[in-house]
């Protein structure tokens, strides 16, 4: 990637993070901003440092994870429509988290995260198994869409039958995603599996590039493809699981982010990973900002904002991809 593009991406990320810190529901006066920076303990400082900053950072972390996971899945499956949300990995992570909550384990440290992780891994393994069986890219996407609906339906079902009835709002939180009211502890808890997953995905980069040439050529390339492939699936599932445990199911970021930076990375699925993570972080921080500052009676859900932008994009990518599949 060129230096200009790197600087541009980095600059944009800093810009949206700053905006996430400075803008919000409550409008502060310049004097209050001054106070907040001089005295972090003041009421204005509280708003900036304990409400807005962790929220913006959480959005960036989750967007980055989903952007990276999406890029890894697209490379692995050689499919421009792949994304943790589209393939049902997010929905099953949500299902895993919902199960742990319904079983009354939400107070146990790490239980919800573990549940989401297990769900994401199961869906990830299922999807990569199906990918080996169904060579047609459209078939895999259709299977993913059905997995995704199934996961969402089962999650709603669990909340319906849960012994301690959960409010509908709580269910919507899980199904539509939100990063409101997060603190630094939440960020740290998400950071561990995110870092691990990112490491695995980045390690698999060489294999993702080689897979451009197809399964057989990659298998004979001399790279340890079996391990690289497993690393990509496990890494993407870890990041998706962590993202869902922390913020519910946020769709389309993993789909959109890789496409925004694909040309910048020379179309190389291995070199695309980090730019895609940064693009995902920018996208989700911006989306969260929109959900906060849009004047509305009740705050817009993050997943709604990303879907409003992401769903048309998905259609556009599908339309363009279907032409190249036919050729």
């Amino acid at each position: 990637m060129s230096r200009t593009a790197t600087l541009l991406l980095g600059g944009l990320l800093i810009l949206v993070l700053l905006a996430g810190l400075l803008l919000g529901e409550t409008t502060l006066t310049p004097a209050q901003y001054g106070q907040a920076f001089a005295h972090p303990g003041s009421p204005a400082g509280e708003v900036l440092w304990t409400i807005r900053l962790p929220r913006a950072l959480m959005a960036a972390l989750i967007g980055g994870g989903l952007g990276l996971a999406g890029a890894a899945l697209q490379g692995l499956l050689r499919n421009p429509l792949a994304d943790p949300g589209v393939l049902g990995v997010s929905a099953f992570a949500g299902l895993g988290a919902a199960l742990t909550i319904a079983l009354g384990l939400s107070a146990v440290t790490g239980a919800v995260e573990a549940g989401a992780l297990v769900g994401a891994l199961a869906a990830g393994l299922l999807v990569s198994g199906l990918a080996a069986r169904f060579r047609e890219p459209e078939a895999l996407i259709l299977l993913g869409v059905s997995l995704s609906s199934l996961g969402g339906a089962l999650t709603a079902l669990i909340f319906n039958f849960s012994p301690s009835p959960v409010a509908t709002a709580e269910v919507m939180n899980w199904l539509l995603g939100s990063v409101a009211n997060r603190d630094f502890g939440d960020i740290l808890r998400a950071l561990v599996p995110m870092t691990l997953g990112a490491g695995l995905c980045l390690w698999s980069a060489r294999g993702l590039t080689m897979l451009t040439l197809g399964e057989e050529t990659a298998a004979l390339s001399g790279l340890p493809m079996a391990s690289l492939r497993t690393a990509a699936v496990a890494g993407a599932a870890l990041m998706t699981g962590a993202a869902v445990a922390a913020a519910g199911v946020v769709g389309f970021v993993g789909l959109a982010a890789p496409h925004l930076v694909r040309r910048l990375s020379g179309d190389d699925p291995g070199k695309l990973l980090i730019p895609s993570a940064v693009a995902g972080a920018i996208l989700l921080t911006a989306a969260d900002l929109i959900s906060r500052v849009l004047p509305s009676e009740q705050e817009l859900k993050l997943g709604v904002v990303t879907a409003l932008v992401g769903a048309p994009l998905f259609a556009l990518v599908a339309w363009r991809a279907s032409r190249s599949w036919r050729a």
Partner: peptide, 12 residues
């Protein structure tokens, strides 16, 4: 090995 399948995944 040069397989018969010449589909290339991405525009490298």
């Amino acid at each position: 090995y040069l397989p018969q399948e010449r589909r290339v995944g991405w525009n490298l």
